[in-house]
């Protein structure tokens, strides 16, 4: 009977500390997986979904989904045109029941990895619901090039 007055405050303090620890843990920012995806070296000849709402591989908050795949790239490549310039193509697939209006741009790099060519410009295209669309972009230079294509939702 005499232990009760001491027990209650201790229990209260412990619960408070546990709650604070939990809140701190939840607020500590991004998960390891999110950090990894946001900072990984993407390399060349790749398609990046710079808009993580379109395609991401990390949990978005406590109750958010683990993985989001509204759009994916089903294939991409580069080929030469008749004048020696390069043309990049990316086929995008829409996994949702809604048309998606997206923007894409291509940054070209030399084989040594130096950014080159004209300044990339966002180009708009619509990916129909549950359908595919192809984005194409040409370089202005005639040297062999590598590319990185960025895709985001239309602003």
């Amino acid at each position: 009977m005499t232990a009760k007055p001491f027990f209650m405050p201790n229990l209260f303090m412990a619960a408070l500390l546990l709650g604070a620890a939990l809140i701190t843990g939840c607020q500590s920012g991004m998960s390891k997986k999110e950090y990894q995806q946001r900072t990984e070296d993407h390399g060349y000849n790749t398609v990046l979904f710079t808009d993580y709402d379109l395609n991401r591989d990390f949990k978005d908050g406590l109750i958010g989904p683990n993985k989001v795949i509204r759009l994916t790239s089903t294939g991409h490549g580069i080929q030469r045109t008749d004048t020696g310039t390069s043309q990049v193509w990316v086929e995008l697939r829409n996994h949702t029941d809604y048309d998606y209006r997206v923007e894409a741009r291509t940054r070209f790099y030399t084989e040594g990895g130096m950014p080159t060519d004209a300044e990339p410009v966002w180009r708009r295209l619509t990916v129909p619901a549950n359908g595919n669309a192809v984005y194409r972009e040409k370089s202005v230079g005639t040297e062999r090039l590598q590319y990185v294509v960025e895709v985001r939702q239309t602003r």
């Binding site: 008749d82 004048t83 020696g84 310039t85 043309q87 004209a118 972009e137 040409k138 370089s139």
Partner: peptide, 12 residues
């Protein structure tokens, strides 16, 4: 611009 530079008559 990019399309014209890929045209043989204009750019090659």
């Amino acid at each position: 611009m990019r399309d014209m530079l890929a045209n043989q008559i204009l750019a090659a």
